[in-house]
Design a protein around this nucleic acid. Sequence first.
RNA 1: GCGGCGGUGGUGGAACGGUAGACACAAUGGUCUCAAAAACCAUCGUCCUUCGGGACGUGUGGGUUCGAAUCCCACCCGCCGCACCA
Length: 825
Amino acid sequence: MPGSEAVQPLWGREGGVAVTQRRGYVPQELEPKWQRRWRERGVLRARDDSDRPKFYNLVMFPYPSGDLHMGHMRNYVIGDLYSRFQHMRGMEVLAPFGWDAFGLPAENAAIKAGVHPLHWTRANIARAKEQLDMMGVLFDWDREVTTCDPSYYRWTQWLFLLFLERGLAYRAMAPVNWCPVDQTVLANEQVIQGRCWRCGAPVEKRDLEQWFLRITAYADRLLDDLALLEHWPEKVRVMQANWIGRSRGLEVDFPLVGLDQSLRIFTTRPDTLYGVTFMVMAPEHPLVAAVTTPEHRDQVAAYVERARRESEIERQSTEREKTGVPTGGLAINPLNGERVPIWVSDYVLMGYGTGAIMGVPGHDERDFAFARRFGLSVREVIAPPDGPQGELSAAYTGPGRMINSGPFDGLEGQAAFNAVADWVERRGLGQRATRYRLRDWLISRQRYWGCPIPVVHCSGCGVVPVPQEQLPVLLPETYRKLDQQPDFYRTACPRCGGDAHRETDTMDTFIDSSWYFLRYTSVHDQTRPFDPALANRWMAVDQYTGGIEHAILHLLYSRFFMKVLHDAGMVDQVEPFTRLFTQGMITRHGTAMSKSAGNGVAPDDLVVREGADAGRVYEMFIGPPEEDAEWTDAAVAGPVRFLQRVWRLVAEPETVRVSGQGADPAVLRRRVHQAIARVTADYHDFRFNTAVAALMELSNAMQEYLANGGARGPEWEEAVSAMVRLLHPLAPHITEELWERIGGDGLCVDAPWPVHDPALAAEPEVTLVVQVAGRVRDRLQVQAGLNREQAVQLALASPAVGRALNGRSPTRVVHVPDKLINLVP
RNA sequence: GCGGCGGUGGUGGAACGGUAGACACAAUGGUCUCAAAAACCAUCGUCCUUCGGGACGUGUGGGUUCGAAUCCCACCCGCCGCACCA
């Protein structure tokens, strides 16, 4: 980024922003200067051997997709602000950065523009770094991580082998999600409403042999440990809990009439077992053909075939009417011996439970709809609190007492569940079971630009892991699908030495990002993924900041990895991120800033026009950081004026025209200490918008002080010093320059954080609000600390109160000391 | 459908159950200037006013309270997540 030569004097209005000649404060000149100094002095390079308490401040690393805009920048400005704040507060801050550099956009760009994914990625990284620099965002670049670099993905492969060794990685044939546009399979988490999360194409089902990670083995811990994450947004915890979707229930075998087999079902409502009037199997259920009687064979075969062909979107729609066909087969309810018909319907999913259900139309909405559609009978077996309804016009799914249930009549709730479950278990008809919505993580990707899965297929030895000393399995330089590159896949079996075939799938890129925060702690270690001692020194991440879009995917996978690595003895902690903050999107003209929408604000333009500091302050002032916010070009003027004013107050106080009198140094001092308290608390709690407001108020108070003839004595010096340091995390460049000019020690970023004195911040006088019957009638300036009687006396003396009381006397008095007095007649 | 979050001036937004609209943007008037910009000062929810002030006002309707933007109930609207998971 060029310095002053890029700056044209801008006059009048440009893009709706008032840009004017600049006198003393020329951000375009001083910003590059301080960026250089920070770099030279190694500011915010984390020391492993520091005595200061550690603070691991992490922002989610990005996919390097091209130019950054101010929407992306919000995340990095928040991160940088927090790093500087914690550093000034005396913490040893670890603030690393890197690039989630494998992935499909690089390949798409390669196809479209004919550039190799690696070159495209490298160019984007260089560009993004430049943009981060120009915004004054500091990271510990000595610890930079790039996931497509062999020095990184070597350890991704190593970790895959660890999972394999621990029985947590396996290969299986399964109906998987296939995206026809991206030409690859997808994990469950990457299918949003039946469509590919990346390109939006409807996902198809295919039977393929693929690699999975056994995340379901950790389902209970991933769910239960959410309770440890008290500093995570409730919303994210709820989303994860729902995603894991633990259900405790009962499996029951229903013997099949005429066959020597049973149909196993899973239910969370054993107390409704007497209400079963039919059974339903998923079309893919292996026993469908066996239960189907000859006269139903054609109809069932046709239905199964049609279900196979339908897309996930069609099948999963709740809107459409239920479909299904009878099989002619019968099952026996083991509780009451009744014979019930077996149907096939696609509302039952093969992938959940046992792929078959018992139909209880009286107490399940879906079963009710199905029964209505096909004229199946409905039976009431759960009575609501106010008694049985007799005829059910809808499924009753609420709590209640068992009825029409033989020996179980009268039981309810957990007792009913247990009685039926015990009965079933004692007779060997089934057992209690826990089921999850969460599925194992499908990680194979049929793409070039990813981390190769380090295994070899040998006709004699089967699947053989690549020995650790042969890692990394390097991605070939030629950009072409790996299964079309014989030089890559032809290899020798590491075990028997015979001809073998390398795995040609690459890993889901979410694997790369599931452990990068550990690599940062010892990025130069050539012997292992990370040094356990250093990981234990820095982990867990104290503050993690990023977008809500990762509420499930990245944050769930990372938690899973952390637990596996903990079990492997590589790290002490069980959760990676202590405190999570999810920032909102920046919109402009009503939609998210993006390249495709063409509404992004480039940091480059902002830096040239207003300076990085004004852009940072505006972006923090725009609204609460956790909420979406609309970028208004004209509104940047506020922060621009604010910084100009701070400059003038600190560097050119003599230019402030005196137009009044009566400046009180004690009042100034009070404002300063109030500001220190507010800004410190606001930064700490991520209330950056009100922190900016508090600093603006302080600048207004300082302006007023000088305009009223205030002396530039010790109180003024204190105000200036506090202002500069409090403002530093928001506007680092201008404050470094001002810090130097006022003769501050060293760099401003290294200066100690100001401490407020509550005694000095206390107001000696307060406004006492006087109400009559809850309505404000007067406001009195009174000395602080008045007692109830004094307050009543003063209130009664007010003429406005006299009018409002109109001769009546108060029967009740509410007194909030130093705030309010309410007289109720 | 279920779950979560939100609805405050022309705009972005403040407000431990206690002065609604902090702080800004925009707008209007003024000081300065040959003029303009910048800077600074003032006004800035709606209606009424004898200019003292008064009434109304935080999506809608109720309720709790001396007092509600804030707590409770019902509803409307918007956004996000899940979506036949038995």
